[in-house]
Amino acid sequence: MKVKIDNIEKLESKIGYKFRNIKLLENALTHSSYSNENKTYKRVNNERLEFLGDSVLSIVVSRHIFKEFPNYPEGDLSKLRAQVVCEDMLNEIALKLGIGQYLVLGKGEEATGGRIRKSILADAMEAIIASIYLDGSLEDADKFILSNLEESIDTLVKGKIFSDYKSYLQEYFQGKNSNYRIKYVVTGEEGPDHDKVFYVDVLVNKKKFGSGVGKSKKTAEQNAAKKSLLRLGEIYE
């Protein structure tokens, strides 16, 4: 039994890749619910491609952020990668490309909204990545992935990833010179005990580098560290 997907050439145009073996793309779009309901189709679906695509996606994104952000320590690279390769991000790309309309689903999955189900769309994206990799090369997969994710990576980096600004600031200066000393000093507080506001300066080698305000000392310190990272150009508003 062979699956034939209508207007698959239009999808190739959206993807930006012309397949030599179109069956790879057809398999990438075939959900297990279809093969389960159609026994003559055996076990041909996108699950194996999804497995491979997950690894290809990870290595492409890892390589890209490793090269693009040389000052990021391992922990922040891991945080960034996790947010880039997550289900939400893959689903967003799938919706943009209109992948749902090309999926081959079983009748039950079709009836229950499978074409817009986040997990199914995200899995299909991983399978498509694998199909491009197998049909072409890692460079082809790289081009497809980054053309769809590079803008999102940039958005994430611009101040939306790091919640522990103090650690990031510490790691930044340690990477420059181990002699840097960072100290947080409370310069003032105001308001009643149940609603205090704290003011904190961050000192780098005894020189004021940034200041922050918060409802607690910890929050004020984090805000001071964030202001310092903004000043350094390591993050953006």
Score class of each variant (00 low, 15 high):
98 G>Q: 04
98 G>Y: 07
99 I>V: 15
99 I>C: 14
99 I>P: 11
101 Q>F: 04
103 L>A: 01
104 V>F: 12
104 V>E: 09
106 G>M: 13
107 K>G: 11
107 K>E: 08
107 K>N: 14
109 E>I: 07
111 A>L: 15
111 A>F: 14
114 G>E: 06
114 G>D: 03
114 G>H: 12
115 R>Q: 08
115 R>K: 14
117 R>V: 05
117 R>P: 02
117 R>T: 12
117 R>G: 01
118 K>E: 15
118 K>G: 09
119 S>C: 07
119 S>M: 13
119 S>E: 11
121 L>H: 09
123 D>M: 12
123 D>P: 00
124 A>F: 11
124 A>M: 13
125 M>T: 10
126 E>S: 10
127 A>F: 06
127 A>G: 05
129 I>T: 03
129 I>C: 04
129 I>H: 02
130 A>W: 07
130 A>N: 08
132 I>N: 13
132 I>R: 15
132 I>E: 11
132 I>D: 08
134 L>H: 08
135 D>K: 04
135 D>N: 08
138 L>Y: 12
139 E>Y: 00
140 D>T: 10
141 A>R: 01
141 A>W: 03
142 D>F: 10
143 K>E: 10
143 K>D: 10
144 F>G: 01
144 F>R: 03
147 S>V: 04
147 S>C: 12
148 N>D: 06
148 N>K: 12
149 L>R: 02
153 I>S: 00
154 D>P: 00
155 T>N: 14
156 L>N: 01
157 V>M: 05
157 V>I: 09
159 G>M: 07
159 G>V: 08
160 K>I: 01
160 K>G: 00
162 F>V: 13
163 S>W: 09
164 D>A: 05
164 D>T: 03
166 K>H: 04
